[in-house]
Nucleic acid binder design. Structure first.
Lengths: 193, 193
DNA sequence: CGGCATGTGTCAACGTCGTTGACTCTCTCG
DNA sequence: CGAGAGAGTCAACGACGTTGACACATGCCG
């Protein structure tokens, strides 16, 4: 349709195409997981997948589209959210402070950098809704529960950006326990209290 | 030194060079003030200044260096900070909610986008220290005042990113007064209380 | 089974980007 | 006045995301 031989629709793929497509997606997931959006070039993804750069665009339409597919399953905050909401604040801060040297930091930095793209923003907003609001708000008593959770996500995002992107020494060099208490309790009061 | 005719050092400039340099800096300030980092090309700055693109690099070394010069005087949060610290939380949120359609939003978005560059990060951290920590911490009673202010900046940054970059409808469509109370008080408790 | 549409892959190229080097002109200072 | 340094022009570099033209291979349908 849009292209004489565009296999953008994954349904009519032949085995070879399926394999190539999978290789590209996996390469993208690997590279986008450990580098920021702009650090990863389409040519690098193609090289990692052992494929022509044109194939990346042909199979996914654009670098941005591939990026979106690469992150949608890797955004989880783990099982922290499932715990009791009464102690969620401290637990979620402790969780991310513990992940300081894991790839999660790079992934968050990549998201921040890519978030000026409309489709990425849309995906992030969707993620906020399903992973946070829909998961937490029902367990709260307040009638403005949804707004409270959304604001909590904003506050959490600010912390992650400081920790992983900005890396302000005032915070990265601070006593983790102190940060957990101060910021965790602040988060907590936003949703319950 | 680094270049046969590099006027990177502003001291030995002749009038013509001084004028060109000023035109470029002003064009940069204008464009970076209303567009994000990547949206503004060196060639566009040069065109806006009526100058050859090479002159931009010659006078400032790089696009990033010019960007840094363009923002360092425009990052202010106004006089909000000077008011009483006891009500700073709500006031600062109200201030930015009021600036929803001002260029401040675009500027913040540009900062977020550019913040993966090391020099920009350094400048932002410096800004956090002199404009926030040094301005607020001395007026607080707590002995962990500096950390509290740094965390407050993180929390504020999260809000600004949601408001200006991410634009999550859960927050942008919410009742501003409700947001001011919820998030403002949360900020407030982080520094006093 | 043959042919034709369609999937798959290769390659070169486009237009953009930030940046650099070679070259010329002009002004200033000794 | 002449030398050296500031100022400006222009073309080009290598990288980027993306596209088009083309060749080859495969699988369905008559």
């Amino acid at each position: 349709m849009s292209h004489p031989t565009a296999p953008l629709d994954a349904r009519h793929l032949r085995p070879a195409g399926r394999a190539t497509r999978a290789a590209i997606e996996e390469a993208g997931r690997r590279l986008f997981g450990s580098h920021t959006y702009e650090e990863v070039s389409v040519r690098a993804i193609a090289a990692e997948a052992g494929v022509d750069p044109a194939m990346v665009i042909r199979h996914f339409g654009s670098k941005e589209a591939l990026y979106l597919r690469s992150i949608d399953t890797s955004l989880g905050v783990g099982a922290v959210i499932d715990g009791p909401v009464e102690t969620l604040g401290r637990r979620i801060i402790a969780y991310f402070l513990d992940q300081r040297d894991s790839p999660i930091g790079k992934r968050h930095a990549g998201l921040v950098q890519a978030s000026y793209r409309q489709q990425v923003r849309a995906e992030l907003n969707r993620h906020t809704r399903v992973r946070f609001v829909d998961a937490i708000a029902p367990r709260l008593a307040a009638d403005d529960a949804e707004l409270r959770v959304a604001l909590m996500v904003a506050q959490l995002g600010g912390f992650l950006t400081m920790l992983f992107v900005q890396q302000d020494p005032l915070i990265t060099d601070a006593d983790p326990d102190q940060v957990i208490v101060l910021y965790g309790d602040s988060l907590q009061r936003l949703i319950t209290g």
